[in-house]
Amino acid sequence: MATLAHIPTAREKGLVSCRRCTRVWPIAQSVCPRCDASLISRDKHSLSRVWAWWMAGVLFYIPANLYPMLTTKTLLYTSEATIVGGAVELIHHGSVGIALIILIASVLIPVAKFFSIAYLALSVRRGDPSTSHSRHLLYEMVEYVGRWSMIDVFVVAILSSLVQLSVAASITPGLASLSFALSVIFTMLSAQAFDSRMLWDRIDPDHTARDNVPQVESTP
């Protein structure tokens, strides 16, 4: 069994890998003949794209918290609720569980994502191999969890189309829903632009050029 420390990367072997179909080619190849994806050993511009989308995501997250997410009109009252305001209201009504889902999906996850992506983008400059593992795990979490922030936008869409009971009760979407959705989309694009292979690059590639390429191991 190959030890983790000794698996060479395609780049260290003078090859370029296709991130789409996992095939490997000589490093000069620029388009994958198997799947037509463009091949880049390490995307130098990847970080600037990450930061550009990241900034857009952060920027749109601010109005998403200032403007109302939805407006509720009933016979007795009209209330406009921001993301956090809506959650607080839910807690007052006793639905602590749902308030938590909303707070986690709309506040905790987006903010944690901003910090995580920034940390990952900054971390590749130092390239400390001992933390590659945990940083990659963080990256996978960001990739996996990010989409779920969209849930609040869907809730607003569902409620606004459903709660249209003439004078008795009606719910209309607020401007925050748009900027929140854009913030989620931009942050997803930021995470996708990140080239996670950079997390595993070592500073002294010569050292590893002689390592043997292991067999894939399969488990049931």
Partner: peptide, 17 residues
Amino acid sequence: LETLIACPQCDALYHAH
């Protein structure tokens, strides 16, 4: 090269079968 496969996430290189 046809027998090789690289991890799309971390670029680790393997002999594919």
